[in-house]
Design a binder for these strands. Structure first.
Lengths: 263, 263
DNA sequence: GGCACCATAACGATGCGTGATGGTTC
DNA sequence: GGAACCATCACGCATCGTTATGGTGC
């Protein structure tokens, strides 16, 4: 029975590839693809080998399209269309996957937006713009792994403090930390409780105070982070100039300072 | 000069693949990949053919990683790292791309969430759940193309009305429309101004009134949409039972009704 | 006979992961 | 000599888009 006959009989229920594809809003190539994957094979083939799709096929294709819309892979879809599939759990998991993706997207978008905002209207050279993006992206990544140590409120407070400081101030803080680390490194052979050690301890506490703003939440996070150096990402560990020796030295120096206070 | 020597001279600035990869937070395989693409070729090769990366390489890799983070393809990155690249415009475009992706993601997430909410705690069979997702996804898609006809406020109003109606009421509305279409189709040979035509016109206006809630914004959108049937997506056109003949008939019938009112 | 549609086959694109195989460093 | 690196293929994945080649329907 050819298409024409079916139509004239008022029983048209077979569609050839292109018409069917248009109805469903997919391409003919996609139909071929689904056919070869065994996802959706047409009800019939004509004598010449033409694919002929029916209404049942349409329902199934609709399901495929919908599952694709929510980001399910064709392989998964194949499993879900089996009779004893557990759709509910998959939906739940997929929602989480999508939420994670959106978080990722948001970070990227924020990084671009912030970089653009920083260079707004001023016509910076490209290398400068690059610096900005790099800084922004690294800040996003920082938020990620540092989040393990800082409570949500602490993170918010840090962000608030940081946004109030001028870029120059931030840069100065960076320089100060770097110089302090160098100085400590150069004094490792001295007595932490001695005068040099006490001066270094004072500078250290001052910088910590500047960073935390005296907030105990932030301080707690910072301490937890410093203690967990072994689990930092490789790049953060490499970027930090604080070696274990330095940590030990400054810890002793600070202890000594406290002890002196008590006396 | 071997690595050891360089280190002992205090001039270490060459890293072999794995160390360099760890520093930058990428895999060795990625380094190979970038090398073969010409994106990042190491400063040197050892006699044995080992890749030796330097600090300049690190800076470049950092740029690559950052651009990847914001979703730029490696091919694009290659172009952006050329000396005369226009980073600014690319950033702007990429931001728009990411925003579009997020919209898409949001639609998928909302579709899942709504479907889950509709089936909450009740243990529905899977086919029922399927129906729900399909409905939700199609609603998301509807919002998309129907947005061309309805103003933002009109869309909000429609959504508000729809969310207040019970699912049963929605289903009834659907059935009513379908029945009306069938009835009109069966009466196409009658006089639109006759009693049968007038009854159909009354039912038509009633359903329109139910949908718009009497809101002129919504009515305007609806009229614009009906008039633009030629540009609907194929599936919407196929789904709608309103053929051109039906449109013409009902238009005449409604006109006649108004005319009678005037007399 | 010509145009629109059909089929199959096969390469392309994206960014590496994952072996396989064999050499290098210490 | 053995562990831990290194190098170069080369296939695999996901989802079709895109020709290329040749048959079919009207």
């Amino acid at each position: 029975m050819r298409l024409e006959e079916a139509v004239s009989m008022g029983t048209k229920e077979l569609y050839r590839a292109k018409e069917f594809a248009n109805l469903a809003g997919v391409t003919v190539r996609a139909l071929h693809h689904y056919d070869r994957l065994g996802l959706l094979r047409p009800m019939q083939r004509s004598e010449a080998g033409y694919r002929l799709y029916g209404l049942r096929d349409f329902a199934r294709l609709e399901q495929i399209v919908v599952l694709k819309f929510i980001g399910i892979s064709l392989k998964q879809i194949g499993r879900l269309l089996e009779p004893d599939a557990k759709l509910h759990g998959v939906l739940q998991k997929q929602r989480e996957v999508l939420l994670a993706k959106r978080l990722q997207l948001d970070k990227a978008i924020r990084a671009i937006s912030n970089a653009q905002r920083s260079t707004q209207s001023r016509k910076e050279p490209d290398w400068k713009l690059f610096q900005l993006i790099i800084r922004e992206v690294e800040m996003q990544k920082n938020l990620e792994w540092k989040g393990k140590y800082f409570s949500t409120e602490a993170q918010a407070k840090v962000a608030a403090r940081r946004s109030q400081l001028s870029p120059q101030a931030l840069e100065k803080a960076n320089r100060d930390w770097a110089k302090l680390h160098r100085d400590i490194e150069a004094s490792l052979n001295e007595d932490p409780a001695g005068p040099k050690g006490q001066e270094l301890a004072a500078r250290w506490e001052k910088l910590i105070e500047d960073f935390t703003g005296g907030d105990p939440d932030i301080l707690r996070g910072l301490t937890a982070m410093m203690a967990d150096r072994a689990n930092w990402p490789a790049d953060a560990r490499a970027a930090s100039r604080a070696t274990p020796e330095i940590e030990v030295f400054i810890q002793k120096a600070v202890e000594a300072a406290k002890y002196k206070l008590v006396c």
